[in-house]
Design a protein around this nucleic acid. Sequence first.
RNA 1: GGGAGAUUAGCUCAGUUGGUUCAGAGCACCUGCCUUACAAGCAGGGGGUCACUGGUUCGAGUCCAGUAUCUCCCA
Length: 882
Amino acid sequence: MPNLSKHYTSGTVEKKWYDTWEEHKIFESRPDDREPYSIVIPPPNVTGVLHMGHMLNNSIQDILIRKARLDGKNACWVPGTDHASIATEAKVVNWLREQGIKKGDLSRDKFMEYAWEWTDKYGGIILKQLKKLGASCDWSRTAFTMDEVRSGQVIQAFVDLYQKDKLYRGLRMVNWDPEAQTVLSNEEVIHSEENSLLYHVRYPVEGTDEHLIIATTRPETILADTGVAIHPDDERYHHLKNMKVRIPIADRIVPVISDDYVEMEFGTGALKITPAHDVNDYEIGQRHELEVIDIFEDDATINDLGLHYKGLDRFEARKKIVKELEEKGFLVKTEDYSNSVGRSERTGAVVEPKLSLQWYVDMKSLAAPALDAVMTDEVRFFPSNMKNTYKHWMSNIRDWCISRQLWWGHRIPAWYYEDQIFVATTAEEALEQAQKAFPDQNLTASDLRQDEDVLDTWFSSWLWPFSVFDGMDGGDEVDYYYPTATLVTGWDIIFLWVARMVMAGYEWKGEKPFQQVYFTGMVRDKQRRKMSKSLGNSPDALELIEKFGADGVRFGLLSSSPAGGDLLFEEKLCEQGRNFCNKMWNGLRLIKGWTISSSTNSTSDKETIIREIALTWFEDKLKEQEDLIQKDFDEYRLSEAVMKLYNFIWNDFFSWLLEVVKPPYGDAIDQASYDRIIQIYENLMKLLHPFMPFVTEEIYQQLRLRKEGDFIATSSWPEGGECDTSMFDTMESIKALVTQIRDLRNKHQLKQKEPLDLYFAKSESTTNLLRQSGMKEILIKMAALGKVEQTTEAPKDLHASIVQGRIKAYLMLPGVDVEEERQKLEEELDYARGFVKKIESKLANERFVQNAPEAIVAKERKKLEDGKGRVAMLEESLEQLL
RNA sequence: GGGAGAUUAGCUCAGUUGGUUCAGAGCACCUGCCUUACAAGCAGGGGGUCACUGGUUCGAGUCCAGUAUCUCCCA
């Protein structure tokens, strides 16, 4: 036996093959005559580390790209990272703070130097980790959203949209993240129900003794109130129309206005209006020309307008103001309340509505072709029900706020002079424009002021499917690879990313960015909680790989993860994958341990006959599997495909076929059979390779002597083709008989190897079964039988009856209990009679016979015949017991 | 408030155009085995009124309506 260790060692094998693959550059792709199959990676955060979601997502991409490679397509998986403005800037700011440096003390240029230093230091770690997972990316194409090529296209996109009038600067209420101190797009705000308090506050009505009671969750904004609203139809407050109220604490006198936005049923039916700090209030304020008083600094502490609360954080101020309201008799009551609170996706800070001047993309002008593409399946979604979500968002689309008050990112290419805006790819061009606009003023570069803000990171990511090919302006690469084949991503970024890529694709390439989108589910823990750092419920990705091997982890992630469905992760799944590797490894050891004889003399004829029939059967089974797996790929049922392979390899190949063809101890195996077994094993490994690349490569290399540069990774997918199913039923009957015999042994506590005699009750079925060359021998070998013969009457000695389909047999068992045997037979008979009755009534129904397709009726007749035969066999056995 | 989806074995999920002995898989569980590839293993076994109620149909896990429970998205 070759020197193969008892257990499969994933660590060394995986490193060896990844290094070898890279040395041979087999993942690199250049345009050629073949059909392209390209995937662009959803770029992870440049300074991020690999987590469970990445592993799932990238395993799926790797499966697809490896399959395409085996299919002979020109497979190109482009890796890369994104600069993640908010997250990365926050990390850099923290890093600087640890060194005692404040961002505020740095110039923009100096800060960027530090940020690049940080990026160079920690950037790309995640890409190295992807290699450990087996990701077969073309690393020579690694892109970064802020590298030169990508940046140029981002700026170009901005300028182009501005020139097409699809981009504008506007004063709007925005979502302000006070922690990151930047504006956020609507999609970056996560709304959820949170427990809070509803405060009922008394507002004195001017010139009367009355009070108007107003319910609010944000009493600190009382300081910014500039009005109070009631519903025009609300009779309770009719008399207050056109009167004024006095704001508590602020002591400001403001008007009572009527507006049908007010919900009469909510709270007291009266609403305080704070135009500076609430989206709806702002609109009401606009309608009624109310003053706008902003009481917050950018970090959400109270400013000069907040009286003696100046300098306090908003939540601190809330506590204090409630106390003051209470002391001064303004607070009527406080009740528990649950309301929707928006938080920043990146920092978790409660988002503060704020009035601000920002850049927006006019989305309505981009949405139409993008909506159409998905609804007509020009871009196919898996699972398809994501189309509904997409449609809803696209049909109610709102403009996209793309400016961010950060330094890390692409600086907005807009320059200002007085009240004029000049948008251009460079400062020089902007200056030229300005000089043309103000010919008399001798403008120089220093007269123009560039916008301080950067662009939303997604404004670079939405170009990704063509920007990675430097394809904004066309070119051979983009012509060849675009549109890409499949996008694999989580459904949580369908709006942030997927929808926008489709829009950008049509806007700049006039074509969809990808053929299909495969949405993965979220990786959750057993309690269905989303895996997150803060919960600490996420296993360390690299430790997992170390423990179970990348193949094991990939198997674990894939085996229960249908498209769009969440994955409830447990280590057990990876363990199963590792065990599977070990099983295959040991199967290899078994085969490699056999001695091969060139002459047939050294193997008994019986074994040769067995092998001939078993291998022929299995080769056809394999073809059938190949077709089934291909269908699963076509429909993106990857979980099902991998589980099919798991079952087929473990149960059909190892537990059945190899046991059948295994030479008896000490015997050799004939060369012809051996070659067929190697070929089968090789094909199985090819089918499994996309899912478990390393172990399959290792086994592929061990199965035969390979030439330098011959890899399973670049081999070809086995063709399914015609398969002869004629032997399938017979083999299943044999298997079922073997199982029944083994069960009877177990129940009678007989050793598995003690030979038992078996007599078949003579019938057409049994004659047919035994006539097929080798079937009887397989039965004898697998069930460890002695004599196997046909008989016309039941044996007189103690035996157990076996009824399998239309086959009846008697297994000679010395210790069989007659009563037990009777009971068993009676139970089976009951079931069989019930079955017959059901079919009889079905066939007695004229409408069934008339309406059902002929084939179905024929099948039912066949079922009835079989069932009746079975009843007869069981009845006969029972009689013989007496 | 608007919308989407789910409910099948103890758990996680398949079940494709309504039709085969259709009620499945993996894990978990139980029994027996260290059998010369594998205890990371082998052989076998038990377990479900397909959420509930009606309807369409010759026939429903599958289609329709309602009910209950749960999940998610959007505002």
